[in-house]
Design a protein around this nucleic acid. Structure first.
Lengths: 217, 217
DNA sequence: CGCTATAGTTACTAAATAATAACTATCATC
DNA sequence: GATGATAGTTATTATTTAGTAACTATAGCG
């Protein structure tokens, strides 16, 4: 029902681009010029369609009054644009509940909420939040309930804190590259490290922990 | 040089408010209506003045093309508006380096950087970030270098983590209200608690820690 | 084939909007 | 008292802009 036609997509994309470049919305003539159509009736109908489908709102009679609906910044399309784009202050990222192999393409149903962060934290694509479960990293001052900002990457640097998929469950571990293996070390003396030798275990590195966010009270 | 007159301030304020409410800029007539002046020449001159002083930019001939300069969101005036206002996604808060008695009015020189946060974290006024020094709260998983989001308040609830001014220095402590005194307990066995009896010590509660933000790598 | 949705054209109009001209008033400063 | 900056008025105008009317074209579908 909310699917967009190709033409509607390019209208939508042009509006986001124009808003980023100018700081305000395009007029219908601006859009018509970009679409290379003459007259603005076509544009009006596209906008009406986009409005009906919930992608934007307008104020009748007011010029340049297009307002994009923020909740329609759905993963991954619009989000990619926001992360890679010239977003001025902050971007929206999904908070995924349970991490699966599908990363970095979390299914929309898994998105529990959204958080905004400083733009420069999310330079590269696909970044997302993960809600921390368990106390495996308690000695690194990361606790249950914290939000970990994850940058998806398969490799990691020595001593990075990473998200690893162990037995189908996402856990945080510190990454150590050693002689002939990789060691994923929990920062909790009560837990055992995981040793991975070449193509041996069912363990996948999903990404690196870039920052930690905790809400008190 | 960049000081604003009273009238210019109210123009500026109206534009920010209008943008927040509508998602796009007001027309000159909108502004004139708000100022209760007839004709829009006055408005044009105010906008020209604001533009010359660097507070906004416009595109000649384009309607509703006012674009506020983001860097002019200086503490405390514009910031207060942002915090109290209907900011949709996130607000900008100063990160203060050393906390002094002047809170919640940190002098601008102390602002080291800015961070954006989720809007609903900053409902009440004056909120700011404090860069954590020392390890007095290490057992509460708060470490040196973390950013603590502080909501200024003189009172605190039992077991809140608060910022206290002890000997002119800001430190984090957990707040305990007990029989005939208040106890400020570090979450580090190596440190001693501070006991405060009625108007006895030179200790001030500055605010409550609302959230913690940590950047890795 | 007829029906519907999408997409486009030309021509037009009314309202919204930005901008200018000519003039007055107040206040601080030299 | 003159000068300049700020602030305001009424009147007018040209352009921008949103929206409408009437018509054509294509593609998918039953």
């Amino acid at each position: 029902m909310n699917e967009l036609t190709e033409r509607q997509k390019s209208v939508y994309n042009f509006i986001t681009t124009y808003q980023k470049q100018h700081g305000y919305s395009p007029s219908m003539q601006d859009i018509a010029g970009h679409l290379q159509v003459s007259g603005n009736l076509g544009v009006i109908r596209h906008l009406t369609a986009l409005e009906k489908k919930g992608y934007l709102t307008r104020t009748p009679g007011n010029s340049r009054s297009i307002k994009l609906t923020p909740s329609f910044s759905s993963y991954p399309e619009s989000l990619e644009r926001m992360i890679h784009g010239e977003e001025q202050f902050s971007v929206f990222l999904p908070v995924v509940g349970s991490v699966r192999a599908g990363i970095p393409q979390p299914p929309e149903e898994d998105i529990q909420e959204y958080r905004s962060i400083d733009r420069d934290v999310a330079r590269s694509g696909g970044t997302f939040f993960l809600k921390v479960k368990g106390d495996s990293m308690i000695e690194a001052s990361i606790r249950e309930g914290d939000l970990a900002l994850i940058r998806p990457q398969e490799a990691a640097q020595h001593r990075d804190i990473v998200v690893a998929l162990v037995d189908g469950e996402a856990t945080l571990k510190r990454f150590y590259r050693e002689a002939d293996h990789i060691r994923l070390q929990p920062e909790n003396a009560a837990y055992q490290p995981i040793i991975i030798r070449e193509g041996e275990k069912d363990v996948t590195i999903i990404g690196k922990v870039v920052s930690i966010y905790r809400s008190l009270d």
